[in-house]
Design a protein around this nucleic acid. Structure first.
Lengths: 106, 106
DNA sequence: TTGACAGGTGACCAAATGGTCACATAACTT
DNA sequence: AAGTTATGTGACCATTTGGTCACCTGTCAA
C-alpha cells in the first residue's frame, strides 16, 4: 500500500475524521479523553487512532502512563498537492474563455 | 451516510482514483474502454464506476448501447473547501510569529 | 434476421474492516 | 503495599468490500 493510499483510507471513516477534528481543535489529548467524545469503547477509538498514526496523520508522545496524540497535517497537505489540487484548480484556459466572453459582451 | 462520506469512501480505493485519473486525461469514455486500462474484469470496473457515480464524481450519459462516463470534480472541490482546506491552510498567526522572529534577528 | 457487441443483474466468495471483550501490564496515589 | 488509572493485546464476530461468474437484455451491422 502506498503512503497516499494509507492517507485516503484513513480519511474514509467518519469517526477518524471526527478524531482529526477534535485534535485540530485541541492537540495533545489522551486516549481516554478522546474516547469520552465518541460513542464507542476505548478499544474502538484506539484502533482508529492507530490507523491515523500509521497514515502519519497523528503523532504520539508517551508521558508516564498516558499517551498524548498530536495532529500532523503534512500528509493531508501532500495528498492535496499531489492529487486533489489537480481536480480543483481553475483551468486557466477556462478563465481566458470567460475573459474573452466578457470582453465581447461589453 | 452523508455526501461527504460517500466522496471520501469513493476516493479511498486506488482503482477508483485511477479511473478518475483516466477520465481527467480524457472524458466520455465507455465502460469497455476503461476496462481495457485496468487489470480487472468488466464487472469489477462497473462496480467501481457505480460507486463513483453515487458519490457524484462521475456522471453518465447513455448513447445507444454505450455508456459514456464523464468526470465531475465538484464533489472533490466540496470536500476540499469544507474539510481539507482547514487542515492545509497556512495559519496566519504562525506567519506573524515568523515575521516577528525575523525582524528581531536583524 | 442472425450474429456480435455493450452493458446490467444477482449469486457468490474471500478478505478487510469496525467493533467488542477478557485479560494483562505499567504507572501513579494513598 | 494495595488499589486505581491508562493503555495494550489477541481472540472473536458481523458486516462491508472488492472481485468473479453465469446469464440476461438491448443495440448495431451484415
Amino acid at each position: 500500500m502506498t503512503d497516499d493510499d494509507r492517507v485516503f483510507k484513513a480519511l474514509a471513516d467518519p469517526s477518524r475524521r471526527f478524531l482529526l477534528d477534535l485534535l485540530f481543535a485541541r492537540d495533545g489529548r489522551t486516549l481516554t479523553e478522546l474516547e469520552s467524545e465518541l460513542e464507542m469503547t476505548r478499544f474502538g477509538v484506539a484502533k482508529h487512532l492507530r490507523v491515523l498514526e500509521e497514515a502519519g496523520l497523528v503523532v504520539v508522545r508517551r508521558s508516564g502512563r498516558e499517551k498524548l496524540h498530536y495532529l500532523n497535517s503534512v500528509p493531508i497537505r501532500q495528498i492535496h498537492d499531489r492529487w486533489i489540487d489537480k481536480f480543483t484548480e481553475q483551468h486557466i484556459t477556462a478563465l481566458i474563455d470567460l475573459k474573452r466572453t466578457l470582453e465581447e459582451e461589453s
